[in-house]
Simulated scan of single mutants.
Amino acid sequence: MPQTHHHPDVERILLDEQQIREKVTELGEQIAADYADEPPILVGVLKGAVMVMADLARSIPLDVEMDWMAVSSYGSGTKSSGVVRILKDLSADIDGRRVLIVEDIIDSGLTLKWLLSNLRSRGPKSVEICTLLRKPEAARVEIDVKYVGFDIPNEFVIGYGLDFSEAYRNLPYVGVLKRSVYED
């Protein structure tokens, strides 16, 4: 059922709850089929991936383990430089394991490129990526993403884990943030 009411800072709803739910379920089914013989360890990237990770894990009818990383990329304001530091590392050893990175959104790809390299250096059997959202127009590096929920325009989006200054993560939909909110 489409959202008719939204937060006053939201210009418009890009993806409603039902669209997100259906896509996450579809991604979970694809992942279950691809990993039926050997379930992956899901690696969520904090904080944005919390919502998609929780819903995705519930939609995969396999015994999947979950772990988390928090990384920070240096840059100015809303721009990433690709220079990354680990704030919270994995608890699990991924040597010889199948790893599936779960992201909320991929825009420039710079931080994710670094994360891929870092995880691959730890000896996993494989490393693949699942993202709910991807902004093809914002890409600054080429990254092979196995599972993509939606390709979206290069706009500032919030909700369903995505934030602006730690606000809006709990919105149940993905919306475009009004420019007046972040261009003061």
Rank of each mutant, 00 (worst) to 15 (best):
I158C: 13
W68P: 14
D95P: 06
R97E: 15
R134C: 10
E17K: 09
I152H: 04
F150V: 01
Y168K: 01
T4E: 15
G149C: 05
I129P: 11
R12N: 12
V176C: 03
R122P: 13
V174H: 07
Y182G: 00
R122M: 02
P172Y: 10
A92R: 06
L162W: 04
R134S: 10
Q19R: 04
G123R: 13
R140N: 11
R169S: 00
F156H: 10
L162C: 07
S59G: 08
G82A: 02
M66L: 07
L171M: 05
V83T: 03
N118A: 08
D163W: 13
L132H: 09
K135R: 14
S72Q: 15
L132V: 10
I106Y: 08
E142D: 09
F156R: 07
G44H: 11
R122N: 07
G77C: 06
P172C: 03
V141C: 06
A33M: 07
L171R: 07
R58N: 00
E11F: 14
V148C: 06
I31P: 11
K125I: 01
R58E: 15
D104R: 12
V64N: 04
G44N: 09
S59K: 10
E65M: 02
P2S: 08
M53A: 09
V181A: 07
G96M: 04
E26I: 05
S59T: 08
E128N: 10
Q18V: 00
G109H: 02
M66I: 15
V71S: 02
F164E: 06
G28M: 07
S73G: 05
L87F: 03
L116M: 10
D63T: 00
S126E: 15
S180D: 09
K23W: 09
G149N: 01
D63I: 08
I143F: 03
F164W: 12
A167S: 13
L132T: 11
K79T: 15
V102L: 11
S73L: 12
V102C: 03
M69F: 09
I41D: 03
T25W: 06
K88V: 09
D107K: 14
L14E: 09
G82M: 02
K23A: 05
L171E: 05
V10L: 02
L133Q: 05
R85M: 02
E11Q: 10
E142A: 01
S91R: 09
V45P: 12
Q3V: 02
Y160E: 13
P40R: 01
E11R: 06
V181Y: 12
D163C: 03
T4C: 10
L132K: 03
L62H: 09
Y35Q: 05
I152A: 06
R98A: 04
V71F: 06
I60V: 03
L27F: 03
E128P: 00
F156S: 11
H6K: 08
V99P: 06
D163T: 11
L119W: 00
V84Q: 00
N170D: 15
N154G: 04
E65K: 01
N170L: 08
G159A: 01
G149F: 10
